[in-house]
């Protein structure tokens, strides 16, 4: 696999959306290519940062209780 192809598949690799065969091909390329590996780790890190920044909001308990009452 060439670096360009790896780069094209990086989003789907990070999102775990490649087929097993495709993912293995990307994995093998990453293991032999420090530049692509660094890029991959950066993309993974970015996705984690977005998740952790946005997923700390939870529904207030009073709202949860109110909904439970309304729905029962």
């Amino acid at each position: 696999m060439r670096c360009e192809e790896c780069s094209d598949k990086l989003d789907r690799f990070v999102d775990r959306e490649l087929t097993n065969t495709e993912a293995l091909e990307v994995q093998l390329h990453l293991e032999g290519c420090p530049d692509c590996m660094e890029h991959y780790e950066f993309q993974e890190h970015l996705k984690r940062v977005v998740k952790h920044s946005c997923d700390c909001d939870t529904a207030p308990k009073a709202f949860r209780d109110k909904l439970r009452q309304i729905l029962s």
Binding site: C54, D55, D57, T58, A59, F63, R64, L67, R68, L71
Partner: peptide, 11 residues
């Protein structure tokens, strides 16, 4: 069951 997804919907 629906309420188990409340946090996702709220966020």
């Amino acid at each position: 069951e629906a309420l188990t997804h409340l946090d996702t919907l709220y966020r």
